[in-house]
């Protein structure tokens, strides 16, 4: 067999073996067997010495071509095998990925964040105040005179020394007005306390977001506009609102705001108790007595205030049927919200 023929045979054999190789190890063996120092090709090329320069040149060329082709074929095949992990029989893609333990914000926080974000984007600054309050900030400065029937149903917790656990976040209005001059545009989220009988709808602790804006020319129309925009964001654009006149000592005129039931769209269902509307917040124009208490001139300054219960919004949105679940802190409950 001529050298050329031998070369041809080795080439064919090598190509077949490489292409049918099953592992990187096998390929490495093939490479050594054909191209290594003691490999077949090397052995053949050793025989070149006896050939003419023309033959040398021809065979040398072919041999080099063969060498580089097989070499790259082996490389390709190696990459192909390395890339193709499915050849590992124990590989089972249905096994679960490594779990990263993910915690959850509390439902109250989720709702509170959503509400405060909306108002922050409207330019409200966030303020805070003490939870153990004086009678003055919780009641008197907000136009709840001592001995007024409006105090009765506030179900107040008292601490020693005549302080109260704040029954609303409205006291922050007074504290901020005292510190600032108009314009003042603030929301005050926070925890409040009421000494009510605990049941599915009531708990002795809950959260409110209070908002207020005092400036030279604030109108009831401004209040309505802000609350409408808020409800568009929180519920859905175009949702209908109903403003019902009501009474709060620190606003006049006062109103309660109903939003068209988010579940039935106003047709009536168990969520809205077949009323078609859900009561979600209270609001009004800040009473001149409040402005007087903080040294603002009610002739020059007008303003609005509104307040809403965060738990109520959360319960409505996620249709949670018992407020007490929020304070039990059962992780099976907490993990449901995000």
């Amino acid at each position: 067999m001529s050298i050329i023929e031998q070369l041809q045979r080795i080439e064919n054999e090598a190509r077949n073996k490489v292409s049918s190789a099953k592992s990187v190890e096998e390929l490495e063996k093939l490479r050594v067997a054909y191209l290594g120092k003691k490999g077949e090709l090397t052995t053949i090329l050793r025989g070149l010495k006896s050939l003419s320069p023309e033959e040398k040149k021809e065979i040398g060329g072919k041999a080099n071509k063969f060498k580089s082709e097989i070499d790259s074929q082996i490389k390709d095949k190696k990459e192909q095998l390395a890339d193709n992990v499915s050849t590992d029989p124990s590989f089972d893609y249905t096994l679960p990925g490594r779990p990263r333990r993910q915690g959850h914000r509390h439902l109250i926080t989720i709702t509170m964040d959503e509400v405060t974000d909306i108002f922050q984007r409207m330019g409200f600054e966030i303020a805070a105040g003490p939870e153990i309050e004086s009678d003055y900030y919780n009641f008197e400065a907000l136009n709840f005179p001592p001995d007024h029937p409006a105090r009765d149903e506030q179900d107040t917790f008292y601490t020693e020394g005549g302080m109260v656990l704040r029954t609303h976040t409205s006291g922050i209005q007074i504290r901020e007005f005292e510190k600032r001059k108009p314009p003042v545009k603030i929301i005050a989220p926070g925890r409040v306390y009421r000494n009510e009988a605990v049941d599915a709808g009531h708990f002795c602790v809950f959260h409110q977001v209070e908002g207020f804006y005092a400036d030279s020319d604030v109108t009831f129309g401004d209040l309505k506009g802000v609350l409408e925009a808020f409800c568009y964001e929180l519920f859905e654009e175009g949702v209908k609102l109903k403003f019902r006149p009501s009474f709060f000592p620190f606003t006049e005129p006062s109103a309660e705001v109903d939003v068209q039931c988010v579940l039935c769209g106003g047709k009536g269902c168990s969520l809205c108790k077949y009323e078609g509307w859900l009561e979600i917040l209270g609001c009004g124009m800040i009473d001149p007595e409040v402005f007087k208490a903080v040294g603002y001139d009610p002739e020059k300054t007008t303003g609005y205030a509104f307040g809403m219960g965060i738990e109520r919004l959360a319960l409505l949105k996620y249709r949670v049927n018992d407020i007490r679940l929020l304070y039990e802190n059962d992780t099976r409950f907490i993990k449901q919200f995000r």
Binding site: P149, A150, D152, E153, Q154, D155, T167, H168, S170, V192, R194, F206, Q208, E210, S246, F247, F248, P249, F250, T251, S254, E256, E279, I280, L281, G282, C283, G284, A305, F306, G307, M308, G309, E311, R312
Partner: peptide, 9 residues
């Protein structure tokens, strides 16, 4: 009544 501005009587 909700937990609103003031749980008036």
């Amino acid at each position: 009544t909700t937990h609103d501005l003031s749980n008036s009587s």
